[in-house]
Design a protein around this nucleic acid. Sequence first.
RNA 1: GCCCCUGUGGUGUAAACGGCAACACAGCAGGCUUAUAACCUGCAAGCACCGGAUUAGUGCGCGAUCCGGGUUCGAAUCCCGGCGGGGGCACCA
Length: 1014
Amino acid sequence: MFERAMTTDTTFDLKATVNLPRTGFAQKANLTQREPERLARWNHIDLYSEIRRARAGRPLFVLHDGPPYANSDIHIGTAMNKILKDFIVKSHAMMGYDAPYVPGYDCHGLPIENYVDKKLGAKKSQMSPVSIRRACREHAAQALKRQTRDFQRLGVLGEWDDPYLTMSNAYEAETARLFGHFVERGYVYKGARPVYWCIHDQTALAEAEVEYREHTSPSIYVKFPLPEDQVRELARRLAETDKEASAALLADLGGKPFFVLIWTTTPWTLPANLGIAVNPRFDYAAMDVGKEVYIVANDLVEAVSEKCGLRMNTFYCEPRVVARFRGSALEGLQARHAWIDRPSLLMTGEYVTLGGESDAETELDVADAQKKGTGKAGTGCVHTAPGHGHDDFLSGQKYRAQLAAVYDQLREAGALPGQMEGAEVYCPVDNAGRFSSEIEGFAGQQVFEANKNIVDFLRDTGALVFTEDYAHRYPHCWRCHQPVIFRVTPQWFISMDTPSKEVREYSSDSLREGALREVERVRWIPAWGRERMSGMFKGRPDWCVSRQRVWGVPITVFYCSDCGETILDAEVIEHVAGVFERETADAWYAREAEYLLPDGFACPACKGTNFTKETDILDVWFDSGSSSLAVLARERSLPWPADIYIEGPDQYRGWFNSSLMVGLAAHDQAPYKMVITHGWTVDGEGKAMHKSTGNAISPNEVIKESGAEILRLWVASSDYTEDVRLSNEILKRLVDAYRKLRNTARFALGNLFDFDPERDRVPETEMWEIDRWAMAASREVSRKVVDAYKNFDYTSVYHALYNYSTVTLSAIYFDILKDRLYTFAPESEGRRSAQTALYEIVDCLARLLAPILAFTADEIWENIPGSREASVHLAEFPEAVEREGDKELLEAWRRLFEVRSTVQKTLEEKRNEKVIGASLEARVILRASGATFELLEKYEDLLLAIFIVSQVELHWTEAQERNLYGELRVEVEHASGTKCERCWNWSESVGEDASYPTLDARCIRQVKKGWGER
RNA sequence: GCCCCUGUGGUGUAAACGGCAACACAGCAGGCUUAUAACCUGCAAGCACCGGAUUAGUGCGCGAUCCGGGUUCGAAUCCCGGCGGGGGCACCA
């Protein structure tokens, strides 16, 4: 192993007696090439399973993976998410936990279906749902394959060959079963909700399927009468705060009819009008236009007068504002419908804005029109048809009680066919967009065609104040390019407030109660997560789980063909789930109802045996929300709830949310004990990364450029509780940092080339004191780092290890050690002592770095002498205990290094004066007093090594002299004697021994010891 | 419109509790040529004082904590108000 120190005769090879470092651990990392090789090796030895095996029987620590959407390639945010998960899993394995990691993929849903739609084009309409689903399944499978490859490339260990897929048989079956839990508890109901509806294709459209195009609608201003008793009520209300306005109203009331003036661009929605919304905070005005009084928003009095030409109508005066009052004063009053004999309730809504917005479904378009300078339109009084608009619908819900009488009337008239009591919404338009029969005068007309007729009718009856054509952007169907309408259709909901039926082990809690309770029990990092989550549940409406799509888990409900009875039954669902288990949920489309239902099933209402199947599928959030139960509890026999969820902040409304719902439905409990949220990735300036802004950095590019290790180091160095910055400059810094860490390890490894821990290890008590100091320092940093890992604080891990490597090791300890390592006889006590310390240090360093620098730590590990686990990831963290005397040692040496730093400053001065070059050319003269003198005297023998100089003199001196650093005075002059050719120390002893004319006494001793007499 | 998070040298990050703003990189000036595409050291403004002068030393205010106020003996930290960035809700693409 050693080169021969002595050549055969005359030449004495001095160089060969210097123990320079040797190692196969290359200085150049060459990560882009070496990482894949290491991955292959891990794969080969099945490292993940090995780790699980090594920890079998130990306490479990379960991080449950939030499934990324199996659509596009991974981006920097998903990469960070996976790397953080890997930190958690690897570090917990090294803490001694059995820490499984089952990655998953979210496979159902609209984006995939849309993608497939586009690919299939016109063909899709001819395809059966089963074939479409097959195409979606295929697409998801391909995308997740690519993602898997990319995730693995990051160095993330897990069950990659068997991830969980929300589209697998078992998973789809469990999703259906979990829906059954909601059913069993009585949380599920069918209600109504407004959706985009294409009357041409006769289908609901998702938002993503709507495109906005230019469209011309009739803009109309319509009078809704406000009866005398209602005006009196308004005056009575105002009397409390504003007697004048009140009196003025009453005065005007003599003979003049009052109207609320509304504006809309969708005349066809007027038959469905049930109310008028005003903003409670805005001022409204009663405006006398001569023979009539109109109520409009105060700020729009002029605009409306102008637009409707109201000045022309009254030859003797301008419109006169009779009274002003808050919108809130109108709430609850009953205007009359413009022509139908029923009340139109005055409602308040914050969504009502000035400047023209009227119908909810065209609000956007008006704003758009304004930008274009089309001018103001609207009255501040918004015609509200709960069946035809989003805000309208919500207002309809809000005022359900006040509208009850109207609904009773409609129901009696047969205008609410087949709707569920309590959840009914008036929507007199059928699938084809035709008015239903009770709409007098317009029954059977298609809504867009009816527009003109309605306007004419309004003009004839005198309700119309003004009309004009109005060009704006209006939603159209992306497939047939026809304008769409807003229409309420039946949807399945999960109720937030219905108390649970008391069946099985369930509590009687409503989902909202349960959620608010569980949120308190979960640990949230950062802590504001709790607030955010509970705020979310306090306000959230019932969960609409229906999607009118194909690619997902069907809502497993049947309808009796004979009597229309809805079969919403957990036992039936359980049976269907059994079929899914065998055939996937495709069975819902491929099989007849009879096959899916239990044998001999008959309608509980009419005993009929013919059934149709529900066509809606479940919201994808329901799928992924089922994951903890489908995966942990069902598929993999892991404990539930999980110890930890960690995702981006978008998951508060997403996965964290739906998972909690499902956990509550099944077990009255949150599926997680702890939830960590990490920030978004942003660019160097803190701006969001977008493909369109061009500041996005793709993980695959970074890997190609610098290696996955750099990405991992980036994640570790960043504070993930905030937004995380990434730029090329940051990456450059990280490459530097990486190099520093790598070289630090390399030095230690290089100096262990002849060290066999079994044979050469020196017991700690017999080590040199500085080496014992180094051992204590290593333990100190281990404690700090392991602690940080326990707190998921990887930034502290990074900084602790980085500072330790650069300062403690590289700048101080290793520098001091060089002389001893290189010039002492190989097997001398002093060298072995140093090597023992290096051995411990690099062993600790590899373990502590392993979760972060997964590749490099393993490479270090392989280069440490001695027998050890096949991979550092199989090892555990160093035992982080403080030993007797560590504290004192660290303190004493801290002070010695302060002196060292002072000495170095003086050395630098002399270097600038050209008195010395290398520090070994120096003689240091120390004059000290007090405690400093005592300390230096105690360590006098070691001062040469500590300062890395050739000669040191220590004198006791009184303080108060020039050149004082506290109680220490440092002088530096050139060392005496001659430079030893071997160790470069300067010494008077060089030349004393004629056999070694160029060596100093110390080297001669070491050479004789190590390589024998000459 | 409302709410939450965030802002420290050129760059990246530190600094329980309010207590000397630290580390590294980059930059500058050097050293070493035995970690060598490595490693090591030093350096970040001013005024006054001391002093023949240089090196060094002393005192003061000041400082890179986004800006402006406030609380405090003392603020990066706590409070209020702005500005920039990010996100959420509502709404919209």
